[in-house]
């Protein structure tokens, strides 16, 4: 029973600190995701574009980012370029996380767009729609609904990956666990508690994503109205 009482002790003693740290984890993830979405949109359109140079740029970006570990990217932005630009640990962390996730989001969006039947674009073009209009009016409204499940998945991965910013001393959930554990020498109980915090955040987020997904479900048409 000591395990159980230890856990209760940790929560009652450090619960507030963990809550604050949760907020840090959530905010650094949210800011990085906002950034990642912008990057994702830009690079996915580069990849979809018929311009070979833009294709190459996107391939290069995605190749480099996916080919190197996130922790290396975080360290690089915080320590690596410190001689040229000094970023706060929060900025460096959010930036690294955003750049990293952006590459994956670019691929998710590209996949969703390319999963739309070719006939859709052909039909739109055959009606005289320029490509940009056809993409905006016909392809994207169908694609973004398909992108939501994999995006939700990617957001969860990012939330958990944000724990790596502890290594550049952002006081997020994981960093707080490291500190607490350093004081109480109870790794089992401390990591159990911090795991619980992550789990709860992820579960709340999953719940929200599922709601959004249901609301946007294209496969179920709205009730037909009388003409």
């Amino acid at each position: 029973m000591t395990l159980f009482t230890n856990i209760i002790d940790i929560i009652s003693e450090h619960g507030i600190a963990f809550l604050k740290a949760s907020w840090m984890t959530i905010s650094i993830t949210a800011i990085s995701l906002l950034f990642a979405m912008i990057i994702g949109f830009i690079f996915s359109s580069f990849k979809i574009s018929s311009n070979k140079i833009l294709n190459r740029i996107a391939d290069l970006y995605i190749g480099i980012i996916r080919g190197t570990p996130l922790i290396v990217q975080i360290m690089f932005l915080y320590y690596g370029i410190a001689n040229f630009v000094t970023l706060s640990s929060f900025t460096a962390g959010a930036l690294a996380l955003g750049i990293h996730t952006g590459a994956y989001i670019a691929e998710i969006i590209r996949g969703a767009v390319q999963s739309i039947d070719r006939g859709q674009l052909e039909a739109a073009r055959s009606l005289g729609m320029p490509k940009s209009l056809a993409m905006r009016r016909i392809i994207f409204p169908q694609a973004y609904k398909r992108a939501i499940p994999p995006l939700g998945n990617q957001f969860i991965i990012s939330l958990k990956d944000s724990s790596l910013v502890a290594y550049i001393s952002v006081t997020d959930l994981y960093n707080t666990a490291l500190t607490v554990q350093g004081e109480n020498f109870m790794p089992f109980e401390t990591y159990f508690v911090v795991g619980l915090y992550y789990l709860i955040i992820v579960l709340i987020f999953t719940f929200i994503t599922n709601k959004v997904e249901k609301k946007l479900d294209v496969s179920k048409p709205k009730e037909a109205l009388p003409a």
Binding site: D117, G119, Q120, E122, A123, A124, R125, S126, L127, G128, M129, L133, R137, I138, P141, Q142, V218
Partner: peptide, 30 residues
């Protein structure tokens, strides 16, 4: 393409739009 209408084997209607919206899309936006 505005002058040349095309009908496809697999219809290629826009699934996210109603029948009416399918028809008025291009006249309005093009």
């Amino acid at each position: 393409r505005e002058k040349v209408g095309m009908v496809f084997q697999h219809f290629n209607l826009f699934p996210h739009k109603t029948v009416l919206e399918n028809i008025i899309e291009a006249p309005i936006y093009v």
